[in-house]
Design a protein around this nucleic acid. Structure first.
Lengths: 212, 212
DNA sequence: AGAGTAGGTTACCACGGGTAGGTTACTTCC
DNA sequence: GGAAGTAACCTACCCGTGGTAACCTACTCT
């Protein structure tokens, strides 16, 4: 029975490392997304965890390290989800749609750490940007790998990589847009990308007269 | 060993404000893109300009202000170029292609300040991110405005805004990719986006058998 | 020549990332 | 129980850097 003692000497409770790390990550994620990376101070995070600053450095090495750690878990989870969902599709079309839907769903629901990086104002550190780039590359690879099996040596097949880049960039941007438009579901968002990928503008082009 | 006054006072040249500002912007752009925003110090920039730090603050207010100033000119120039080029097209297809080509050309040639913001590791400040968002919004608007005149109330027409977001995001991402692939010309890059927009993947989808 | 001002400086502050080195709670093994 | 060992934890500090106050001086204009 060592409940909190009176003022003079706080009976500092010791917490195992794994537990503390979880606490720290939780608080850090909160503070970073509240204030933005730059405006957040390690002192504040430490204080809110109820621990002193050197502990943060002991466990995460640096402010950047803490940021990265906040995202790593979200990042690997995102890749896992999109990959497994995409692979359930039998045709390339299904695969792409599945992957896109999973992506939008993830961002909408579990993606606080993710949006922390992606959202305006949040980024700062070179390593954080590298994190984002790494994740984009993962998804580009996923798309290339998924579609290349099917792609003939046609116009798209020869340019699969840059095309995948466009899809990844467009999807990411649309995800940001979706934040301001919560009425748009993950499926609808995925459909929008599919619409484009499948030739949405061709219809528009064809419909317009050739006037100049 | 007394004060540094011993040296004959250098005949400190005075430089008019406009000129100094240009110098400062030039140096700042250089330093920022060399070191990245965070790793750049105002002291170093001031020293390289050959002026003392308070002058930077006098003219640009803050570190962020200096960064923003570096990009503002590139940003307005980019919008001008894409807009005027796009408007030369008679059909929506031409307009889009023209605009895209102008974008890629600009990024490749004049866009140092631009890439400074966009490239990995460069960003940091909230205002810088806001800058990027503003520029993206400008281009989204441009696309929406250009195409809405032609768009019927079809699937695309009803979703022109999010579709434009996807195009903007995909284009931006492809521009980054093009940096690593200088052999790809602006026209080719624009063609890639057009290919997608006009239904590049439809062909791939159609070509593949109905099983994986 | 002397006033007014744009251009310029030195010297400083405070905040925040990061660290050295010591202290205390908990475990282990006799 | 108690010494020994270790993991968790702290206080106190350093110092780089963004930002500022207060003062100075080259140039212009009448």
């Amino acid at each position: 029975m060592t409940t909190s003692r009176s003022a003079p000497t706080a009976p500092r409770r010791r917490v195992p490392r794994a537990e503390r790390e979880r606490q720290m990550l939780e608080v850090a994620e909160e503070v970073f997304s509240e204030r933005g990376y730059l405006a957040s101070s390690m002192d504040e995070i430490a204080e809110r965890v109820g621990v002193s600053k050197p502990m943060l450095y002991e466990y995460f090495g640096s402010k950047e390290g803490l940021l990265i750690a906040c995202t790593q878990q979200a990042r690997s989870e995102l890749l896992r989800v999109t990959t497994t969902t995409a692979l359930k599709g039998g045709t390339p079309e299904e695969m792409l749609r599945n992957g896109l839907t999973a992506y939008f769903e993830f961002i909408q629901t579990h993606g606080r750490a993710w949006l922390l990086l992606r959202t305006e104002g949040a980024f700062a550190s070179p390593s954080a940007a590298a994190e984002m780039e790494a994740s984009r590359a993962e998804h580009t690879n996923l798309i290339v790998a998924s579609l290349s099996r099917f792609a003939p040596s046609e116009s798209v097949g020869a340019n699969l990589e840059p095309v995948a880049e466009v899809i990844v960039g467009g999807t990411e941007r649309l995800a940001v847009w979706c934040q301001q438009h919560p009425e748009v579901s993950a499926e609808q968002a995925a459909d929008l990308v599919m619409l484009l990928a499948r030739g949405g503008l061709a219809e528009l082009f064809a419909a317009s007269p050739n006037r100049g």
